[in-house]
Amino acid sequence: MIAAEQGGPIGAGCTVAQWLRYWLATDQGIRPRTRQGYADHVRLHLVPALGRIVLSELSARDVRRMFTALAGRRNRYGRPLAAASLERIRATLRAALNEAVREGLIDSNPARTLRLPAAPRPRAQIWTDRWVAAWKAAGERPRVAVWTMPQLVAFLDGVREDPLFPLWWLAALRGLRRGELAGLRWVDLSLETSELAVVQQLVHVGGKLVPFPPKSAAGRRTVALDPQTVRLLRRHERDRRAEKARRGEAWHDTAQTRRGGSSVAPDYLTYRFHGLVLRSGLPPVRLHDLRHGAVTIALAAHVDLPVVQDQVGHAGIVLTADTYTSVLPELHHRAARATARLVLSAARETARRVRRGRCGWMTQV
């Protein structure tokens, strides 16, 4: 026996439900947000489908039957569960059963051999004129959308008086995640060297906002700042200090706080951003889509992909290339013209060395 639980001892004869609850309660290596996702999967999907089965009798067929049923289920919006959602549920089950293998409760993991449809990484769609027209006519919108440069400029111009404007600016230009924006402290800004250090993010845990380090080593990074951003942050810090002094409030190290000194929650950033977008009349994007847009802008400015990878804090360049590199339309046209110029230049050079009749098409282009 490993331990005892309200539902009975945790041993070879325990049920899948007993083991899953024990695993959630004892594994201290799980990050809070990850643990919350695991708990949701256990409560909503794994226990209802597999909970009554004795852990040692759980088979690959049981697991496959559960995922077949899940694939036919509809979410609250009436759509089937996405392949990415099924993959995350499978990851939860595999992690729990791998721990059961390590504890000697089962010989092998019955979820290990399960094959699910590949979950494609989302690719951002630029809000071109045609997409905007489709959205206005029928409400159609891409799953992940990015504003064009004029659209982004229009949004930033419209919200320049918003108290959270510096955060919208950093999200749009430097691609910080919402938890990183909420957790940003004045001490993390080195305006003398024009740099910003991402060393923590705010996360909701048990109804409280708790600072945690970034998920990966790559997430802990230094982000370069341009002179305009430095001026913006200096002015913002000066204004915030003056406001605090006027109200007689203590100075908080968090770079952005709400009235009264409380930190800005990541969920509040999402909520406020959504309202600002609605009022702007621009085609809709999510707060996280500004991160996609920041990569797009960097590529438009001819920034090398490895530099962009470091900027947004990805551990591997494949994720940056596959997920975040939606490219502005003008870059496609620029690439097409550059390719054509290269071919035509070579063709004209060849035409000088051979008879005109054999390479007439080259000289006529």
Rank of each mutant, 00 (worst) to 15 (best):
L232A: 06
Q28N: 15
P32Y: 05
G261I: 11
G29S: 15
D267L: 10
A91E: 10
A347K: 06
G183A: 05
L114I: 09
D188W: 06
I10N: 00
G72R: 10
T15N: 03
S263F: 09
G219R: 07
L209H: 10
A301E: 14
A133E: 12
V308S: 10
R348H: 08
A172F: 04
H252S: 10
H45E: 08
A298L: 04
S345Y: 14
D239C: 08
G360I: 13
P9G: 07
K215A: 03
V343W: 07
W131I: 13
S263D: 15
A69T: 09
V308Q: 01
Y271A: 13
V16I: 10
A71F: 09
Q200W: 11
T350A: 15
G183R: 05
V47Y: 00
T270H: 11
R352G: 15
P283M: 05
Q28R: 15
N75G: 04
L164D: 12
T193N: 14
L328E: 02
V205K: 04
A82V: 14
D226W: 03
F155T: 06
R21D: 14
V312G: 03
H332N: 03
L81K: 04
Y38M: 08
L202D: 03
A250C: 13
V205G: 07
T323Y: 08
E87T: 09
Q125M: 10
L305P: 00
T363S: 07
I317S: 01
R348S: 04
V343K: 07
A100P: 04
V101W: 01
P117G: 02
H274P: 09
L278Y: 08
G158W: 06
V187L: 12
N109W: 00
P163C: 07
R65I: 02
V146T: 05
E330V: 12
G313Q: 00
G8W: 06
L70P: 03
V365L: 11
G360M: 11
G7T: 13
P213K: 01
V101K: 05
V144M: 05
A298M: 05
R286D: 06
W127V: 06
L331F: 01
R246I: 03
A96K: 00
G7I: 13
R240C: 08
V277Q: 08
H314P: 02
H288W: 03
E5Q: 15
P283K: 00
D157A: 11
D310A: 13
A298I: 07
R115H: 10
Q36Y: 13
P142F: 05
I126P: 06
R143A: 11
V318D: 02
